[in-house]
Simulated assay, not measured.
Amino acid sequence: MCAKPEDPVEYLESCLQKVKELGGCDKVKWDTFVSQEKKTLPPLNGGQSRRSFLRNVMPENPNFPYRRYDRLPPIHQFSIESDTDLSETAELIEEYEVFDPTRPRPKIVLVIGGPGSGKGTQSLKIAERYGFQYISVGELLRKKIHSASSNRKWSLIAKIITTGELAPQETTITEIKQKLMQIPDEEGIVIDGFPRDVAQALSFEDQICTPDLVVFLACANQRLKERLLKRAEQQGRPDDNLKATQRRLMNFKQNAAPLVKYFQEKGLIMTVKCHCL
């Protein structure tokens, strides 16, 4: 293959004869049959220019629209309308004000805790007690998944959540921002189920605001598991299956301590023991 002989049989015979002359197969090296003759490569078509060389190598074809090697037309300006379902507007990280800077910002209360710790119940009670608006991040994502079930991106997110993993951070933040912009005149807003880890907390602060208060519902892991299994029987949520439950509890165990410590250092957190729920 290296020599590309015109007569392969004659070439093999000469190779075998060379092995005999060397004294057997043990004397054969990797380059024994590589030709030692060095040949200089001819110039490219007599030193012609690259443009004319390409024209000769690739002759013009009337069926090929760009047979001339001229400058290509400019790329059309990106537009949201032409975007696909895998890179829709929600995936674009934009810098914009969530709250009207000319008005007082509503109080933001975040309620965090393990899956099944009663975040939804307690968040609603806080919202009702103080006349605040209530947002469930989990419910927000589930509604989006249901309404965009034919969308490939949201179908993938549905699978991620069903296995007990966290939804993509930027997608979740974008959904929260869009929801907040729909309720600009509230005195306060209680957000249930976000953030789940320190990275999400940092993203929330960078893109939305620093919360005024974080309520952490502390509950034993075994109690959380019992409550999740009971909820699965009653509500049939897809993310309450046994495998997803175990994964969610493991994620919570890994992320809870650093997250609580982060908010403690900022003096924002209030811990509530909820073993009696």
Rank of each mutant, 00 (worst) to 15 (best):
R248L: 08
G47Y: 13
M270D: 02
S203K: 11
E97M: 14
R67G: 11
K27W: 02
V137L: 04
Q246N: 12
K119R: 15
H146Y: 05
K159E: 13
Y134P: 04
N45L: 15
R105N: 04
I160W: 02
T245W: 10
R51N: 06
L92H: 12
L86E: 05
G23K: 15
K143V: 07
L166D: 05
Q77M: 11
N251A: 15
S87F: 08
A244H: 14
I160Q: 12
I208V: 13
F33A: 11
D192E: 05
A220W: 00
D31G: 01
E233L: 09
Q122I: 15
E81I: 10
Q133F: 07
S147F: 02
C2K: 09
P106Q: 00
N241T: 14
V215H: 00
R129N: 10
R142Q: 09
I112E: 13
A3C: 09
K225G: 00
G188D: 01
G23T: 14
S82P: 00
I183E: 11
R237G: 11
D197A: 10
R227E: 11
W154Y: 15
P42L: 09
L166V: 04
D100R: 05
R50D: 07
V272C: 13
L166W: 08
P42H: 02
K20W: 04
L44F: 08
Y262T: 01
L110E: 06
C2W: 02
L124N: 04
A199S: 13
R50Q: 09
T245D: 04
P211G: 08
Q207Y: 06
A218D: 13
I108H: 00
R129M: 05
F99R: 06
N56E: 11
A199E: 15
E187C: 06
G138Q: 08
R223A: 15
D85C: 08
Q17R: 10
K18C: 11
Q264Y: 00
K266V: 00
A244T: 09
W30G: 02
K230D: 12
R231L: 06
P115Q: 09
L22A: 03
P8D: 04
K18F: 02
G193P: 03
R50L: 14
K153H: 11
R103D: 03
V34N: 07
V9A: 12
A148T: 01
E91W: 15
V198P: 11
E10F: 09
E95Q: 10
E60Y: 09
S52K: 09
A3F: 01
F252G: 12
K273A: 11
R196G: 15
D185G: 05
S35P: 10
